[in-house]
Design a protein around this nucleic acid. Sequence first.
DNA 1: GAGTGGTCTAGACCACATC
DNA 2: ATGTGGTCTAGACCACTCT
Lengths: 235, 235
Amino acid sequence: MLKYITIANNIRDKINNNEYVYGQRLPYEHELCILYNCNKQTMKKALAILVKEGFIVRRRGSGTYVKDSKTINPINYSSVIYTRPFANLYNDVKSQVVEFSVIQADDFIASKLQVHKDDFIYHIIRSRYINDKPYSLEITYMPINVIPNLRIDHLEHSIYSYIENDLNLKIQSGHKKITSSISTPLEQKYLLLRENEPFIQVEQIAYLSSGVIFEFSSSRHHFKDFEFHTIVLLG
Amino acid sequence: MLKYITIANNIRDKINNNEYVYGQRLPYEHELCILYNCNKQTMKKALAILVKEGFIVRRRGSGTYVKDSKTINPINYSSVIYTRPFANLYNDVKSQVVEFSVIQADDFIASKLQVHKDDFIYHIIRSRYINDKPYSLEITYMPINVIPNLRIDHLEHSIYSYIENDLNLKIQSGHKKITSSISTPLEQKYLLLRENEPFIQVEQIAYLSSGVIFEFSSSRHHFKDFEFHTIVLLG
DNA sequence: GAGTGGTCTAGACCACATC
DNA sequence: ATGTGGTCTAGACCACTCT
């Protein structure tokens, strides 16, 4: 494991376990370097992760301080379910596979996945539940030559785990687009919506670290249940 | 200006001007270092910005490649209007000030701004237009002692510009939460919604680089017009 | 094997807050 | 004045791809 990741994980754990609490000044960079036996730049890289995640703030001339993470309610991170700090909180996620087939890409899907028209791709529809309450309907397209040998039991758990652990591919980033539209009978059925009620859609194009697109997906949520959290760097 | 920011801006411009086009391999890191007269680490820092913004992808052993930024439609970045690459595209943003007063923080606002109950804060409601079409209703709370001397003409343009250029404070990050609710007459009036139609809300707590919270805001959008784009690092 | 990008170190210098 | 975190450099070593 990389040193700066290990250090970041360790410090994050300490914040989560209240060894460092809200408002507290962390040891100075130089002290942390000695504590973790690393160089200044490596410590900067580790702490930069925690800044990005919103756990700490660094002030030149002053020090590094723990931010108020109590304002972050982890249960609401349904749309960033695969990202680091919160993934483990979702033990009771179940998936019902509504559709699992191989189709040929039309122009729209081909442009999103950046494959050729008529290339073979998986077409997957899953209804997902947290604590037996429906919380999303997920429509997923994946090129069959990027993600081979997908089976239905992978869908019932996590496709991402199959990709990372079994295929040994590295998932890098997702470009997400959040929009809202009036529901059709499909969303009404699986999200328990009434006619004319809208749903929230999170469209995603997901990349491997190689730059290859492996997924185009649409996660659809009941408009009343939806919460999406993100930290944006400004200025 | 910082060297790595300058370099990132320059390379981003070249991509936007099609000097580097989709799929093209950029010069190797070492060549770019010579071209921009900088060190390896500085170039890494510059290119990391463009990776995060989704402009390029780097492949170990191979090179750095331009990603398909045509899938990113800048006009849709209404909710990240203040972030770097797209801010300049919004020349025709107008604000109508609906409310501008100083009130005392109740428990809810005080907890969001992390100030004391009954501290004085600005209460601002603005209706914003792009190309004379209503696109958001923004409700903003700011502690008066963090952002002093705010005047109505600041509200009609950009509060952020007043904070950064006049007060000389550095804006760092925003914690955004996106949700949806049924509209009240307020949203119906300013977003041209019908009864029982929902709106999309982007709640934000915004931080200065000092770690001080300077803003709690709610941007409300018509559900049909709303698009929010973000890039999430996975895995 | 050669060359790429990624990690890590050591150290200089700077901007900023006040330990 | 001292010490903080931020930037930049120079160089070693590693993992990975293929020029």
